[in-house]
């Protein structure tokens, strides 16, 4: 038993990933609505930015053409719904109901347990939301997206996006131990990430000083880095390596922060009743 656990360190967590996938598969009509919602978002983004670009006479603004902006924003929307896992809500509810005490009695690490559960959700969403959106965008843009090594590099990039975004969610969820204001905290997190990562307005449109600051924050590593890997025609091996390096850097830092924060916070847990 000892040996097998050593060979496959996360073996026992995969059953939790499976549970995450099954949960997603159970609510099939929700997945259909998710998909329709993303398509509507794509259509609104298309009409909005078509109207915006109609007001200029130049093809490219801040180095981005209409087509590039459209691809960037729709794929950002798809990544958002892929990574969106309601973790803050789940942790907040477990904390308020006292359920969280159950997890302390189990021979599993809470962080890893939650991570592998969302991995199941994210994997399902990747197949059901991201890939269809990617295909639709590729077809509508006339296959102008590069199809080569960028697709391979995108996989580790999106995996690291998941770890970064999960760690931030986990830290925000841990804050619920102190404040019990799930809605407000989750709202602030979403607004900050969506705006500062470039998922609402591409970072290229931000004033330069502002953008330079944002480049030093972890949020752009969630959306901007994997998206640039996917859509750029000019990336060289050095650019790919740098992109993945930036993500790895934030991943290590944020995972460490999330785990330390939770460990020190779990000492203050007060569970309601028995």
């Amino acid at each position: 038993m000892e040996n097998r656990t050593k060979k496959l360190p996360f073996r026992r967590y995969f059953s939790i990933t499976r549970a995450g996938i099954l949960e997603m598969a159970m609510f099939r009509s929700s997945r259909v609505l998710d998909f329709v919602g993303n398509m509507v978002y794509m259509i609104v983004v298309y009409f909005l930015w078509r109207a915006i670009y109609a007001s200029t006479h130049t093809v490219s603004v801040n180095g981005m053409t209409f087509k590039q902006t459209l691809i960037y924003l729709t794929l950002a929307g798809a990544i958002f719904s892929t990574l969106n896992n309601y973790l803050v809500w789940k942790m907040g509810r477990d904390i308020q109901s006292g359920q969280i005490s159950l997890f302390f009695t189990k021979p599993m690490d809470f962080f890893l347990r939650e991570f592998f559960y969302s991995l199941g959700n994210v994997a399902t969403q990747l197949v059901l939301t991201f890939i269809p959106t990617f295909l639709v965008v590729s077809i509508l843009s006339g296959w102008s997206l590069p199809m080569g090594v960028n697709l391979l590099i995108f996989l580790p990039a999106i995996a690291m996006s998941l770890v970064i975004s999960f760690s931030i969610d986990f830290m925000v969820g841990t804050v619920c131990l102190y404040s019990q204001s799930i809605w407000g905290i989750n709202m602030m997190k979403e607004v900050i990430i969506l705006l500062l990562s470039g998922a609402t307005i591409p970072l290229a449109f931000f004033p330069e000083a502002f953008r330079n600051v944002l480049m030093f924050l972890p949020f752009q590593a969630i959306y901007n880095v994997p998206l640039m890997v996917l859509v750029s025609n000019t990336y060289t091996w050095i650019d790919y390596a740098r992109a993945l390096g930036v993500q790895a850097f934030w991943m290590v830092i944020l995972v460490a922060c999330a785990r330390l924060f939770f460990r020190s916070s779990s000492r203050v847990i007060t569970v309601n009743g028995g």
């Binding site: 915006i52 670009y53 007001s55 200029t56 603004v61 801040n62 404040s179 204001s181 809605w183 407000g184 905290i185 989750n186 709202m187 602030m188 607004v191 900050i192 969506l194 705006l195 609402t200 307005i201 449109f205 931000f206 004033p207």
Partner: peptide, 25 residues
């Protein structure tokens, strides 16, 4: 906290328009 969260959403919407009109008339 909820009021700040609500205001943050509203301000982000405002900033989005401001950013768009920095580059487009």
């Amino acid at each position: 906290i909820s009021t700040i969260g609500m205001l943050a959403t509203n301000i982000a919407g405002f900033i989005s328009f401001w950013l768009i009109f920095q580059s487009f008339p």
